[in-house]
Design a protein around this nucleic acid. Structure first.
Length: 207
DNA sequence: TCGATGATTGAG
DNA sequence: TCAATCATCGAA
């Protein structure tokens, strides 16, 4: 259970997106004075978002209050609210010569705290718990209050630990966007597609 | 200010 | 296929 350090995120965003597959997103839920509930999942789907080279990126038009986490230290959570009801989780990552960048966590395979996830999601369907960026945020009880959290700190309520190296990775264009669709910046663990850990919307798209 | 728009989801 | 739903952003 070792936390991934900040050097990992200080590399080109697209490579970080690919290399995050197979690692573990961990959510520590503080319930009461001393009790800590641990929830986690294997990262099975990611997308990279860049800067001025990427019209689909929130950072494309420059620094704003919302996207400031994409411009700050690498290895920080960038969490935003969208479509009126959903939160999306990103991790800031970029090489030192680039001003902004982040990796969107699109899907997990539930690992620990599955009963809690069922309660937060209001469903018992394992494959529906974290098979989408909005769903995984709901399952892990993640909201904007976690924006900017250091995911390289093992004591952080949201952090990433080492997992395994996937045998086969699928690369596709990003989905749910209208611009920048030519960039092959979406990454998926091949086995997890077959096992059903990606959402239906994602499966409908070309893989 | 104000209107348009989403890195989505669940229901029909 | 389509509505829900609201923070954010750029134009006015």
């Amino acid at each position: 259970m070792r936390c991934i350090s900040s050097e990992f995120y200080a590399r080109p965003t697209v490579g970080v997106a690919r290399d995050l597959l197979g690692n573990i997103l961990v959510r520590l839920l503080r319930c009461g004075s001393s009790k800590i509930k641990r929830m986690s999942g294997i990262i099975v789907e990611t997308e990279a978002y860049g800067f001025t080279n990427d019209p689909a990126s929130h950072a494309y038009r420059g620094l704003t209050f919302r996207n400031s986490a994409m411009f700050g230290d690498v290895g920080r959570a960038y969490i935003y609210f969208t479509y009126g009801s959903q939160f999306c989780v990103n991790i800031s990552a970029r090489s030192s010569n680039v001003k902004a960048g982040a990796v969107l966590i699109r899907a997990l395979q539930p690992l620990e705290g599955i009963e809690e996830m069922k309660a937060f999601r209001k469903t018992d369907d394992i494959l529906a718990l974290t098979s989408g960026p909005g769903k995984l945020s709901q399952a892990l009880n993640i909201n904007q209050s976690l924006n900017g959290y250091d995911v390289t700190d093992p004591n952080s309520e949201l952090h990433v630990e080492y997992g395994f190296s996937p045998a086969l990775i699928i690369e596709t264009g990003r989905i749910g966007i209208s611009r920048g669709t030519d960039k092959i910046w979406r990454f998926i663990i091949a086995d997890k597609v077959r096992q059903g850990y990606l959402n239906k919307y994602a499966s409908r798209k070309k893989i």
